[in-house]
Amino acid sequence: MSRTLTVATLFPLATVAAADEANASALVRRGAARDLTVETVTVDRADSFVGADVYLVGGTGRGGVAALVEALTSTDLAARVADGAVVLAVDAGLDAIARSWVDPSGARHQGLGLAPVTVHSAPEVTGTVVTRPDASLDLPALIGWEAHDLRTVREDDARALFTLEVGAGNRTDEAVGETSEGVIAGSVIGTRLHGPLLALNPELADLVLARATQRSEPWPALESPAVERARRERIAEARRTAPKAEWRSRLPGPVAARLRR
């Protein structure tokens, strides 16, 4: 029998749009393929907050984060997440649910504290991101896009969501020689990657749906040829252009920032 899930997109107008809203419809499509009925709702003010199985919060830019934190604080999001609701927080959304974040002036603020990360200023990075396949999360190589000037430090030994083949990611593990991206802690998933991430990467939509339904066994294999082809082309393009981005990222921040203008 088909189970019904509610997916709520939270306060999309508070932040700069980055195509994250298409993540909700991606969950509808992938849900249908997994025999789940997914209903979507957009919450744009605190008193229309609803109980949901999945909360999406995204957008980019640091200008809107304060408003986002304020809006989220006046909802039951923290309680829902404590009860096991999944939250997928992208970029500005991750700042808002972090333990602390920095505003454009560099001042540090309290976030909601749902994601075990602190956010710090760093030189700007933009570009296409390719993740490494991860058997433990049942994920192939995924494609995404990052544009931020932040360093995302995981705390409490929380695991990263991805390791990256191409891209800057959290920028915390230079010494280890691998690039981590985002965070996953229980039902809280945080990342800097726009995309729209779930539309481009249906396997990640599967991960969200699995956490929302407390499913532990892997989903049966499911092909989505059109999306896979688009992703294959993007990954190939990112690999071709990646070395060029590489030498810039080794430069001191201010120099790199000037070169990018």
Partner: peptide, 12 residues
């Protein structure tokens, strides 16, 4: 409506 390339929110 919202633009994706500007870094300016619709609200502002």
């Amino acid at each position: 409506s919202r633009e994706y390339t500007r870094g300016v929110s619709l609200k502002s």
